[in-house]
């Protein structure tokens, strides 16, 4: 018997239609997902040996690597160690490994970033998704957070439910912030005219 390769269908899909509330700006309770944090790869692998959990040793390795990479790309960078420690606590900052060589070569511009102190993995499996991860850094008040900084946690080890937004990647570049608040002068300018002019119209799609 030969196996057909490559297969023509997805390995996973998003199955749940949760309604407008979960896509609104504020995450609600329904949007929470299983998550677990680890200070390092070894502790994740140790936990993966318990068969009841939703991740494997391979998930640990893949997501730790992804978190390390994302840390390099999205962790906040500061122009001084003092500034970094102000945001992340004394002793929790170091040099920027990505810039060390470049900085040495050019002789200037050394930046500081918080230390990577663990990572969090989250499961979208219940809605047919995969596993996501985020790196963790310290906060000024002694807690732990993702680089985006909008969610903080008491510890870098343990399991629980967190909002799905926790796993949104922090921006690596900053242009004009698209989500800033603004004064709105007028509403309702879309949807009024329609090329179907008589009769009701059930759908904009088709």
């Amino acid at each position: 018997m030969t196996e057909r390769l490559p297969r023509k269908r997805s390995r996973h899909v998003a199955l749940v239609l949760a309604g407008t509330a979960t896509l609104a700006l504020a995450a609600c309770e329904d949007d929470r997902m299983d998550a677990q944090s680890f200070p390092d790869l070894e502790s994740c692998i140790a936990a993966s040996k318990q068969e009841t959990l939703w991740f494997t040793e391979e998930d640990c390795r893949q997501n730790f690597a992804a978190a390390q990479k994302e840390f390099q790309e999205t962790a906040p960078r500061y122009e001084s160690k003092e500034l970094c420690e102000q945001e992340h606590g004394v002793g929790n900052c170091g040099g920027d490994p990505a810039q060390t060589q470049e900085a040495q070569n050019s002789g200037g511009g050394f930046s500081f970033m918080p230390l990577l102190v663990g990572y969090m993995m989250g499961s979208m499996l219940s809605r047919g998704g995969g596993i996501s991860s985020q790196p963790m850094v310290r906060t000024a008040d002694g807690r732990y957070s993702t680089p985006k900084g909008d969610q903080s946690f008491a510890s870098n080890r343990g399991a629980g439910k967190v909002p799905a937004a926790t796993f949104q990647r922090a921006p690596s570049t900053i242009g004009k912030p698209p989500m800033s608040a603004a004064q709105v002068s007028q509403r309702g300018g879309f949807g009024a005219s329609a090329t179907a002019r008589s009769g009701g119209r059930s759908s904009f799609g088709g």
Binding site: T20, Q168, A182, V184, S185, R187, G188, G191
Partner: peptide
Amino acid sequence: GLGAHFTALSQIGLTE
């Protein structure tokens, strides 16, 4: 990895 936000089409507004 994107931020996804729903808004009713009819609620879209125009800023100053």
